[in-house]
Computed example of a mutant assay.
Amino acid sequence: MDNNKRPENMERITTAALAEKFIQEQVKEIQNQVGDKKVLLALSGGVDSSVVAALLIRAVGQQLVCVHVNHGLLRKGEPEQVVEVFRNQMKANLIYVDAVDRFLDKLQGVAEPEQKRKIIGAEFIRVFEEEARKQEGIEFLAQGTIYPDILESGPVKAHHNVGGLPEDLQFELVEPLRLLYKDEVRVVGDALGLPAGMVYRQPFPGPGLGVRCLGAITRDRLEAVRESDAILREEFAKNGLEGKVWQYFTLIPDFKSVGVRDNKRADEWPVIIRAVNTKDAMTATVEDVPFALLQHITNRIVNEVKGVNRVCYDLTPKPTGTIEWE
Rank of each mutant, 00 (worst) to 15 (best):
F124W: 00
F128T: 00
K118A: 06
K134T: 08
I119T: 09
I138L: 11
G121N: 05
A122H: 11
A122G: 07
P148R: 13
K134R: 14
E130Y: 13
A142H: 02
R126E: 10
F124V: 01
I120V: 14
I120L: 06
I146H: 11
E131M: 12
K118R: 15
K118P: 04
K118D: 08
A122V: 02
A142W: 07
P148S: 11
A122F: 05
V127F: 09
F140I: 01
A132V: 10
K134I: 04
K118E: 14
E136L: 05
E136C: 03
Q135R: 08
Y147P: 03
E130M: 11
T145Q: 04
Q135F: 04
E131W: 04
K134Q: 15
E131V: 11
I119W: 10
Q143F: 01
I125K: 02
A142D: 01
V127G: 09
E130H: 13
G121M: 06
R133F: 08
Y147T: 04
E129N: 07
Y147V: 03
T145P: 06
G121F: 05
I119R: 12
L141S: 07
E130Q: 15
G121D: 06
E136R: 12
I146D: 11
T145I: 06
E139P: 00
E131T: 02
R126G: 01
F124G: 02
E123R: 05
G137Y: 09
